[in-house]
Computed example of a mutant assay.
Amino acid sequence: MGEVVNAIVAVAVIFFIFRWATSGSSSPNDERRSAAAALGFRPKPVTQEMVNHVHAVFPDIPPDNIRFDLLRTGSVELTSNKILERGFLEAPPAAYYTVYPPAEAPVPQPSSGSRPASASSTSSSTKQPSLIERYSLHDRLEGVVSASEIEVGGKAKWEDTAEKREASLQERKAQMILAARQRMLAQRQKESASE
């Protein structure tokens, strides 16, 4: 009988020593548990690069909204699709800010017209190609007179083969790009005329 009591006491002591020793090393797990308790779901790992990538594509969406949705989905693609479908991301709840402090607002970049010379020279090496350059529409710029002449939108006719469907899609993209360019030029003319 005495040996059984000694064995039970020894197991209890070992259990409490093990629990005490491992309680200090489980702080990342405790943070995850507290984040899951505060947010109501288990957050997925999110890097700042993921937030920056989505924010670069959708600059009008606040970074905190992006991070909150990425914590739910864990995927840049799913978050981007949600923005494309809805047009917005819901704001995080107040509990989010207890776990993740608010992100600093990004410094707005000056528009291309008001750039200093040094900034324009450094950014010219990393300048992204325009849509006109990307889709090789230079030859079609001379033929476009006004935005009303470009037929944009409407339903596309379903083509028989994948090649014809792809060509139709490319043509619709080209028409949309040219129409958007014409609207932008017309707007700039109105603005310059009103000044």
Rank of each mutant, 00 (worst) to 15 (best):
Q187C: 07
R172A: 12
S136E: 13
S112E: 06
E104P: 04
S27Q: 12
V145Y: 05
L137H: 01
L84H: 09
S148R: 15
N29P: 00
G153N: 05
S34A: 14
V144N: 03
V46T: 11
E133Y: 06
S23N: 07
F15I: 09
G154H: 04
F88P: 01
P110I: 01
G113P: 02
V4Y: 15
H53W: 04
A162W: 14
S118Q: 12
R19P: 00
P106A: 04
L78M: 10
L131V: 00
A91M: 05
S27K: 07
E151C: 09
S124I: 13
V11F: 14
E133D: 04
Y135P: 01
P93N: 02
R115W: 02
F41N: 02
D30I: 13
S118L: 12
S121M: 11
S112F: 05
I132V: 15
I177W: 00
V145T: 09
P62G: 02
E85Q: 15
E85V: 15
Y97H: 09
K173I: 15
R181Q: 07
N6A: 15
S26P: 00
S120F: 13
S114C: 08
I66S: 01
G40L: 00
I132R: 07
L78H: 08
T161H: 06
V13I: 15
S124R: 13
Q128T: 11
S25C: 09
A174Y: 10
G24S: 13
P129N: 05
L131G: 04
A12C: 15
A94Y: 04
E195L: 15
A179R: 13
S80Y: 00
P92F: 06
R172K: 10
M184C: 00
V99T: 04
P59D: 00
V152G: 01
P129K: 13
E31W: 06
W20E: 07
E151I: 13
P45N: 12
T161L: 06
Q175F: 09
V57R: 15
S136C: 09
I61W: 05
P59L: 00
L84V: 12
P116T: 10
R72M: 05
M184N: 00
Q48T: 04
P63Y: 08
E171K: 10
R32G: 08
Q48N: 10
A174K: 06
V11G: 05
P63E: 12
M50Q: 10
V51Y: 03
R181M: 08
V99W: 06
E195R: 15
K157E: 11
F16T: 14
V99R: 07
T47V: 03
F16H: 11
Q170A: 08
H138R: 05
D64Q: 03
D139W: 04
S114D: 02
